[in-house]
Write a protein that binds this DNA or RNA. Structure first.
Lengths: 156, 156
DNA sequence: TCCGTTTGGTTGCTGTCTGCAACGGACCCT
DNA sequence: AGGGTCCGTTGCAGACAGCAACCAAACGGA
């Protein structure tokens, strides 16, 4: 128990506020660029970029959503040309999903847009603080990810 | 343009990840305590606690949702006994919403639960880092809140 | 080889939540 | 008073989630 109780509460309260603010921003970013596709689909693109080609169920697991949801999202993303799908050579039931060039570009574009907005909001920040915050947030998220999975586990 | 581009991208990517992780955690926290009421209702309780008694439209504005949504949430929260509502003595159209004792208790309980979870996830953090991160996150959220409202405007 | 079982994915159904629009009532200014 | 404005509620439609039923392919024992 290295953290005092008030600090933990303060930190979680801060995170909660940030999550709320970020939710708004990210939803906005998505439909300002590609309003015609399900906004949540972006969550699938990230693991695709990070881990490369993989199957639908793996995507669902990583995003913490039901397989059916992932399936629909993938269909939509495929229609939009952001991902490509090919049958798994080793398993006729499965498909492998891959980020297309357009998908990678769209992802980069979204990031750029977000960064631009952030630049406006953080006009009076200096580089050191931003770097420090980045580091701390990355560390925090890593720890959160590590602690969360047990709950994500479909009880399986 | 005080922040370099890579820093901005890094920071926004980190925030995006954190938002995603936090979304999961907060939804989980809400329905593990009070699964019978709309999970989003908690977002209304926070401004109520912070700014005291206020009217429905103010609540909606602060939470960034439509007035109709806030109205429904308030109704649900009132049924659950977490808030109390009384007619505005100065304006017969409006109601003033106030956090009830039960609401304050529930809020505290939720915070405690979140803090407990955080304590597990952040077992290897020290007090200084956590405080520093809290400060930075608070500052960040303040800036984000300040920058966001212009965008909230009906999307065009 | 054959057949029952397991697994991957898709689709239908249902419920929740959101925003927009229309409405009723109260306020304010003339 | 009377018209315009504002607050809040409710009806409606759309987006998205999960569960469950379903098909097809792979697996495994007899």
């Amino acid at each position: 128990m290295p953290l005092t109780s008030p600090t933990r509460e303060r930190l979680t309260a801060g995170i909660a506020r940030l999550v709320q603010a970020g939710r708004y921003v990210s939803s906005r970013a998505a439909d300002s660029l590609y309003g015609d596709l399900p906004s949540f689909g972006w969550a699938l693109l990230v693991p695709l970029e990070r881990d490369g080609e993989q199957r639908c169920s793996a995507l669902a697991l990583q995003s913490g959503v039901d397989v059916s949801v992932a399936s629909r999202q993938v269909t939509a993303l495929e229609r939009s040309g952001l991902v490509e799908r090919r049958p798994d050579p080793h398993d006729g039931r499965a498909s492998l999903i891959r980020l297309s060039a357009a998908g990678a570009a769209a992802l980069a574009q979204t990031r750029a847009l977000r960064a631009e907005w952030a630049g406006e909001a953080l006009a009076d920040w200096d580089e050191d603080d931003a770097c420090l915050l980045s580091e701390l947030i990355e560390r925090l998220t890593d720890d959160l990810d590590r602690a969360a999975p047990p709950a994500v586990r479909t009880a399986s």
